[in-house]
C-alpha cells in the first residue's frame, strides 16, 4: 500500500459512509483486511474500519437469517442457525475453505465487496438466494446475484439475509481444487427445493471458471418438475457442460473444466438421491 496515510475507526454506519463520501475513491472499507494487504490499490489513501459498527452477528429474523457483514467465516461455521439452514451447507464450508489462520479474519462483507473470481463463499450465497442489505445514507436491499453484476460503489454492505423460504431446501457445494486449501478450478453450488420426490425449484451456480459467480436460470429451470432420479440428473449432466461458460487458464483448460461441470452434476445427483454413481 505505502500511500495509506489514515486508518479510520468508524463508530457507526453513518460515520463510515460520511467519511467514504467525503473521500470518494481514495477510501476503502476494511472487512478482514486481507485483500487490502495482498492487492494494494495505489489510489486508496484512507482505510475505513467497520469493526466498531456492530456488524458481527448472525441472528434469526422473521424474514430469514441475517448475517452482519463483519462476521467471520469461523463465526459463520459456528452459528447454530446456519448449521440448520438449507442442510447447513454454508456453515459446513465456512469452516473448511481457506486456512485456519484466515478463517477468523475473512468477513462475509469483505468477500462480497471484493468478489474475487476464486471466492467460494459468494457463489454459494448466490445459490442460497442471499440478499444484501446496503447502506448509502439509507438502507436498501437487493439480491446478491444482482449486486455482483452491478456493484454499488460507495455503499456499505451492512448485512446478508438468507431468506426463510429457503431454510428447508437442500444446499450443496462442490469444488474442485488441487489441495483442500487451494482455490477452486471449478466451483459449483446449488439450492434445490423438492416437493416429495419432485424438484420444485432450483438454483445452479458455477464459479472459478475463471470468472465470477454466475447463476444459470435456464439450466436450473430444466430441473423443475422433474423427478429426483438418475434419468433427470444424467440428462442435466449431459447438457450442463455445453451451457456453462468456462475458459482456459494456467490452472485448467476449457475442455477439462467442461469435464468438471459434468462431474459437479454427478455429485449433485449423489447428494440429492443418496445413490453413488
Amino acid at each position: 500500500m505505502g500511500r495509506i496515510h489514515e486508518y479510520y475507526h468508524a463508530t457507526c454506519l453513518e460515520d463510515a459512509f460520511a467519511k467514504a463520501r467525503e473521500l470518494g475513491s481514495a477510501a476503502a472499507y476494511v472487512g478482514g483486511g486481507i485483500e487490502l494487504v495482498l492487492r494494494r490499490n495505489a489510489e486508496v489513501t484512507t482505510l475505513i474500519d467497520l469493526s466498531q459498527c456492530g456488524l458481527d452477528y448472525v441472528k434469526a429474523t422473521p424474514t430469514g437469517i441475517e448475517i452482519g457483514s463483519q462476521t467471520t467465516l469461523t463465526n459463520l461455521s459456528r452459528s447454530s442457525d446456519l448449521q440448520q439452514f438449507a442442510g447447513g451447507s454454508l456453515a459446513y464450508w465456512a469452516g473448511r475453505i481457506a486456512h485456519n489462520n484466515v478463517r477468523d479474519m475473512i468477513t462475509i462483507g469483505g468477500v462480497i465487496g471484493r468478489n474475487q473470481p476464486w471466492n467460494d463463499v459468494v457463489p454459494h450465497l448466490v445459490a442460497l438466494g442471499a440478499q444484501v442489505l446496503l447502506y448509502d445514507g439509507a438502507e436498501r436491499s437487493m439480491l446478491l446475484a444482482d449486486y455482483i453484476e452491478a456493484k454499488q460503489a460507495g455503499a456499505i454492505i451492512k448485512s446478508v439475509l438468507l431468506p426463510s423460504e429457503n431454510a428447508g431446501a437442500s444446499g450443496f457445494m462442490w469444488r474442485f481444487t488441487r489441495t483442500e486449501q487451494d482455490i477452486s478450478t471449478l466451483h459449483f453450488s446449488s439450492l434445490i427445493h423438492t416437493d416429495g420426490e419432485t424438484v420444485s425449484s432450483a438454483n445452479l451456480v458455477f464459479a472459478g471458471r475463471p470468472g465470477h459467480a454466475a447463476l444459470y436460470p435456464q439450466l436450473s429451470q430444466e430441473l423443475v418438475g422433474k423427478a429426483l432420479s438418475h434419468t433427470t440428473f444424467a440428462k442435466l449432466a449431459e447438457r450442463a457442460p455445453a451451457v456453462v461458460e468456462v475458459g482456459s487458464d494456467l490452472r485448467a483448460t476449457e475442455e477439462y473444466r467442461r469435464e468438471l461441470v459434468h462431474a459437479a452434476i454427478v455429485y449433485l445427483e449423489e447428494h440429492m438421491t443418496g445413490v453413488t454413481q
Binding site: 486508518y7 486481507i34 487490502l36 494487504v37 489462520n101 484466515v102
Partner: peptide, 22 residues
C-alpha cells in the same frame, strides 16, 4: 501471503496470519 502459517499468532484467542493482519 497467508499461505504457510509460520507467522500465526492468537488475536483475542483466535489464530490469525499476522502477515495479513493490519
Amino acid at each position: 501471503a497467508g499461505d504457510c502459517g509460520a507467522c500465526t499468532i492468537l488475536l483475542d484467542g483466535r489464530p490469525v496470519a499476522s502477515c495479513l493482519t493490519l
